[in-house]
């Protein structure tokens, strides 16, 4: 999921200084799990804005905020409330915010969160980055642990000289990715693969902006 963090409320208020009325959009997916854009956060934001003398014309918790078309359809029932609002506040990730930007061509849209990383939820509201969306997966060669993400240097061929008792030179809070990979591949009897030299990564696979269209071309014509 996309891990988000609430932005400082003061900074948000600074962005909103020229506007009085707002429509709020959260997200039932990642932002709900992160506690940054679910039902309770929408209610809290409404309350906080009202305490600052602002008006909230309505709120929506869409199923999936980054699903632009679906969110647009869900917003139909809130047409009036949206029309009354001078600006939109999106309480999900940068993708959700930009869905709203597309849906509301004539209104300013402001994010209330910072988008941090693609994460795994390890415990309730605790998140770790495990995948960097690099475009060319190496997990098949690294015992299922991603060194591109878990190693601060993104090394592909084993630990650097900074590894120390399983810890990383960058911080003792970071486990050395390559020691973890070694231990796991030893357990799973894959050390033969550990010995193979991995070639330099093809970074063109993660070039921005990425786009993907998996539709059948014939279907597209219809």
């Amino acid at each position: 999921m996309i891990i988000t963090k609430k932005r400082d409320f003061k900074d948000l208020m600074e962005n909103l200084r020229n506007y009085k009325s707002f429509f709020l959009i959260g997200c039932s997916e990642c932002a709900s799990l992160c506690g940054t854009g679910g039902e309770p956060e929408l209610a809290a934001m409404k309350e906080a804005l009202e305490a600052e003398g602002k008006t909230v014309t309505g709120t929506l918790l869409p199923k999936t905020g980054c699903q632009t078309l679906g969110t647009k359809i869900e917003l139909k029932k809130d047409k009036e409330a949206c029309a009354k609002a001078e600006a939109i506040i999106v309480m999900s990730c940068g993708a959700g915010t930009q869905s709203a930007v597309e849906i509301f061509p004539d209104k300013p849209v402001f994010p209330s969160n910072d988008s941090l990383f693609l994460g795994n939820m390890t415990r309730f509201q605790m998140f770790d980055e495990r995948c960097s969306l690099c475009g060319k997966c190496v997990l098949d060669k690294t015992g299922g642990i991603c060194p591109v993400t878990a190693c601060p240097k993104g090394l592909l061929n084993g630990p650097c000289g900074g590894t120390d008792n399983g810890k990383c030179e960058v911080s003792p809070d970071i486990e050395c990715a390559w020691v973890r990979i070694y231990e796991r591949m030893k357990k799973t009897d894959q050390l033969e693969d550990f010995k193979k030299v991995l070639e330099p990564k093809d970074w063109s696979a993660s070039r921005k902006p990425a786009t993907l269209n998996t539709r059948d071309k014939k279907e597209e014509k219809k």
Partner: peptide, 14 residues
Amino acid sequence: EANPIEPQMMKFEK
């Protein structure tokens, strides 16, 4: 004197 030494030696070989 890396600890653990095994992955260090495998990298040495690489």
